[in-house]
Nucleic acid binder design. Sequence first.
DNA 1: CGGCAGATACGCT
DNA 2: GCGTATCTGCCGT
Length: 187
Amino acid sequence: MDNILSEEAAKVAPKILGWKLIRYHDGARLVGRIVETEAYDQSDAASHSYRGVTPRTKVMFGPSGFAYVYFTYGMHYCFNVVTGQEGHGSAVLIRALEPLEGIDSMEANRGRTDQAQLTNGPAKLCQALKINRDFNGHNLSKKPLVIAPGVPIDKAAIVRTTRIGISKDSHRLWRFYIKDNHFVSKL
DNA sequence: CGGCAGATACGCT
DNA sequence: GCGTATCTGCCGT
């Protein structure tokens, strides 16, 4: 899997659809299947790494397979998987999960029970899995937060579109999601 | 159900 | 200061 994550973000993003994110918390195991991703690269003005290394962005320039978690809009966390070679600033934003295990805990963490709204957005899934800034720089091959390969998604079942919520370089087709999946954040 | 405003901290100019 | 890789509730249709 390290081979895959060390590729460029735009290649990694579709490949990790179907992979699992596993969170161990309070004796529970919370598992979600990755159903929506976006690529960000230092060559792209929409990326935090575009301006180079800063205290915030330095993990994006580190080795692949680590977590880049940032805080935004004064109240939300977003979770990324660092990709590419060390020294190159890139990552894949995980935008949505399909809840598989520990759904009760996710509901408690989110403070709501409608399953379709549990993890269908980058900040929502962080809330559901209790991912916060403490996970910035965390090695994703270790508990309590692990990313694991799953069943690869057939290319014909992957939709490629523009990214959400950005104003620069918004023409790039760097958002990927599993076609017809019920837990994608937005069509 | 679609559109919009408000919440609210922080990194960077 | 300003803009933000967002979410929610509230409004009108």
